[in-house]
């Protein structure tokens, strides 16, 4: 059969078992627009005849778009169209989800396991388990916004005053620690001084009693002596030692006098007379 003899409109020419609703389909206006399309193509080829190079190059689109671009554009346009009647909603910028942290998925499993562990731990305490875990404390909205500045002011204000050398020295001298140390040292010094002055033993000479002290020695320590009454003073006197010392002093005096007389000659006496 010659191709020209093949009439598509003639049902008898169709293969048996085929009807209009074949498994192949075409766009609705394919045949009506085909002629037009063909004409345009011929026209453009006629135009390009003068430019053989352009005619030889295949007309391929060298540019590409991201995957799903057109699907996304369609969605965006749809949502913009939907929102166009709500002016306020349209003015709000939608939140673009940020990319997940690199190790998010890696940690997700352990995070879930930990949550399960916490829940299991609490399950044995029925009442605690039934209560919603929420923070009942509140804080003013602006508190955290201003806190950093507040702390910085406080830290750098303190730092500024300490930069002066004079202030540092004064701080050191009148600082709590220095004052405390100075106070303790003063108290210790005074305590040692008074202890020594009250407990200072009297030099009591050879006889080992107060009776052997010289008059001046006793006067120098009159504060101590004044603490004794007469009876105590008498008790302190070792009579034997006192006698002995007095006798020894007497003997020394006599022997000294004797010694002096021995050294005087008869002529000296006569001269004196």
């Amino acid at each position: 059969m010659e191709p020209n003899d093949y009439n598509l409109n003639d049902e008898s020419n169709l293969p048996s078992g085929h009807d209009d609703k074949s498994s192949f389909d075409l766009p609705a206006d394919y045949f009506s627009s085909f002629e037009n399309k063909l004409r345009k193509k011929i026209e453009s080829q006629e135009e390009l005849k003068e430019f053989p190079f352009l005619l030889s190059v295949s007309k391929n689109n060298l540019f590409s778009v991201p995957v799903d671009y057109f699907a996304e554009v369609e969605k965006t346009l749809e949502s913009t169209a939907e929102l166009s009647i709500y002016a306020k909603l349209q003015s709000i910028k939608p939140i673009v989800p940020t990319e997940l942290e690199a190790d998010y998925i890696k940690h997700l499993q352990s995070c879930i396991q930990y949550k399960v562990e916490l829940t299991e731990e609490l399950k044995s305490y029925e009442i605690l388990y039934s209560i919603d875990k929420e923070n009942p404390f509140v804080v003013s909205e602006t508190y955290f916004e201003t806190f950093a500045e507040h702390i910085k002011d406080k830290i750098f204000a303190t730092k500024g005053t300490k930069e002066s050398v004079l202030d540092s020295v004064l701080d050191f001298i009148f600082g709590k620690k220095t004052t405390l140390a100075f106070g303790i040292i003063t108290v210790i010094c005074l305590a040692v001084y008074f202890y020594k002055s009250t407990e200072k033993p009297l030099e009591i000479g050879d006889c080992k009693t107060l009776a052997c002290l010289e008059r001046q020695e006793i006067l120098n320590n009159n504060k101590v002596i004044s603490n004794f009454d007469d009876d105590q003073l008498i008790d302190l006197v070792d009579v034997k030692s006192l006698d002995k010392q007095l006798n020894s002093k007497k003997e020394t005096k006599v022997s000294t006098e004797q010694l002096n007389m021995d050294s005087v000659s008869e002529q000296d006496i006569l001269d004196e007379l």
Binding site: F137, V139, F144, I151, K152
Partner: peptide, 27 residues
């Protein structure tokens, strides 16, 4: 250094606030 202080406070102020708040109770 000042920037370090700023970022340190920004990062930890809330965590430390709630930790302290639950101990001392009053704001």
């Amino acid at each position: 250094r000042n920037m370090a202080l700023h970022h340190l406070i920004q990062k930890y102020q809330q965590k430390l606030y709630w930790h302290i708040r639950k101990i001392v109770i009053s704001h």
